[in-house]
Design a protein around this nucleic acid. Structure first.
Lengths: 214, 214
DNA sequence: CTTTCGATACTGCAGATTGCAGTATGTGAT
DNA sequence: ATCACATACTGCAATCTGCAGTATCGAAAG
């Protein structure tokens, strides 16, 4: 039996795309930017090396071709590739990891001005709104004939809902936070605002949620 | 004037902690795991190299000391460090980036079994519940006398709310997704389930949200 | 008909970052 | 007296990013 050499998750991400159809590296990069970027953002550079390793390990095959004089490599998944992909799907996922520089700036806001804090919250909200706009376009494409993989619309709907939920949560939070901060005197002095009340509400929400959804 | 050499965000994260009080590298590592891990997760390894660079650039000073025979280095922020920190707080943050292997597995679920998909959703929910449990403990500590920085509780409350919102959004989504998938025939065949209805609802939610909160 | 611009199709390289193993000492409990 | 756990790091391979650089193709503009 083949030893289950664990690969970087990016390998499986590419394998997953190859399971849908053969792609050239360039198309693969486009596709990753378009759809995977929401939950598995990787630099384009990575997507040029990883398929080579998949080929070396027999999980994909590469077919060199030409567009006029210009070389182009098309990758295709193998049976072994589909096996490893299915295997990976059966293993527990890594916990979610979030890089959110905006919240880092909010957390350390007392080392700067109240104005800077409000600007940060504004940029966070603007970013969320921009993302929601792009999600709306994707939803539209999935609804109309634009869907590239009509047989996968159910999975797209489920994952799109995750993105929308996440972005709306950020937007709501940033909107709420802006309202609170507006009543503060400075970034280090919240004036009359009582953080303990908010913390108590958070505790309530957690208790309720964990009780009802377990 | 000093040129604003842009540093990795991790440098500012450490600078932010040093702005609160001096720390040894080990304590710094603990603290990053405890609080920053939620929105700026970094390997412990990183936190041993970065302070050295801060010292080299005059943003911090290191004081070597001893605990018996064992060396230990304590870092302190300098005035230049506080300046750069405030400067960073005034610059727009990087957009949020999420590594969520669980959703990647859901997205490619049709390459595996329905059972594997349900297991993935379960693990996502379990992870969210575990995190909410830890958040609850942190909220408790901030509420009772356990707060290490009572003058910063307002900022803790605002950021804690972000984490709670995010985790609850994930938990709600995973719960909902499990219900939907339960009605599917296989991971590639949703049976009677109509993804278009869900997509239409998502479009509605985006339209409403962007209209009301802009 | 030529120039220009954006899309296609990559490679090289320095530096950022992780994960893990390894080395050692200090402290409190059994 | 021993053991487990906390403290306090370093080395290294592999992963990953960002950016600059190379080159061809196709369509539109002048």
């Amino acid at each position: 039996m083949t030893p289950v050499r664990s690969r970087p998750t990016t390998a499986y991400a590419i394998l997953g795309l190859l399971a849908l159809q053969p792609w050239s590296t360039y198309e693969l990069a486009q596709q990753v930017q378009r759809s995977l970027n929401w939950f598995w953002p990787r630099a384009e550079r990575r997507l040029y090396d990883e398929p080579k390793r998949l080929v070396a390990d027999g999980l994909a095959i590469s077919t060199p071709g030409f567009t006029g004089q210009r070389r182009r490599t098309v990758y295709e998944i193998t049976a072994a590739g589909r096996d490893e992909l299915a295997d990976w799907l059966g293993r527990p996922p890594e916990p979610r990891a979030v890089d959110f520089e905006g919240v880092l700036k909010v957390f350390f806001a007392d080392a700067g001005s109240r104005t800077a804090l409000l600007a940060t919250l504004d940029e966070i909200a603007a970013d969320a709104r921009e993302r929601l706009g792009r999600l709306d376009v994707m939803i539209d494409q999935a609804l109309t004939d634009g869907a590239r993989f009509p047989e996968r619309v159910h999975l797209q709907a489920v994952t799109l809902r995750q993105h929308v939920d996440a972005e709306l949560a950020v937007l709501d939070w940033a909107t709420w936070a802006t309202e609170q901060v507006t009543s503060w005197t400075t970034a280090s002095d919240p004036g009359d605002w009582v953080p303990q009340d908010e913390l108590a509400r958070l505790h309530e929400r957690i208790t309720l949620a964990v009780a009802s959804r377990s």
